[in-house]
């Protein structure tokens, strides 16, 4: 079972480090990462495996969102099915 973590906001040092650290803490395995920086705007998309998640999905999403808020970043964790449903027939 996979989820997609998206991080958008102003680019600063250590964003990927912070998200990766949170993933490791909650037993989430990173499968793929893509990121781009346009002007100062940072957008990262991370595909993660959540089979080993040590807390409830909602708690993991909340923990990351709160980490993001402290740095002015919008961090969302969403089950991959919402993207598959919307964009694939």
């Amino acid at each position: 079972m996979k989820a997609v973590i998206t991080v958008t906001g102003k680019d600063t040092v250590g964003i990927i480090a912070m998200v990766s650290q949170e993933c490791a803490r909650y037993g989430v395995n990173i499968v793929d990462i893509s990121q781009s920086v346009m002007r100062e705007y940072f957008a990262m998309i991370m595909l993660v495996e959540i089979e080993g998640l040590s807390v409830a999905f909602a708690d993991f999403a909340k923990a990351l969102a709160e980490q993001g808020q402290g740095r002015g970043l919008d961090i969302r964790v969403m089950h991959e099915d919402i993207f598959n449903s919307m964009h694939r027939i």
């Binding site: 958008t8 893509s34 964009h87």
Partner: peptide
């Protein structure tokens, strides 16, 4: 998944 699709959602 396609990056643009994800960002669109």
């Amino acid at each position: 998944l396609n990056t643009n699709d994800i960002l669109e959602t």
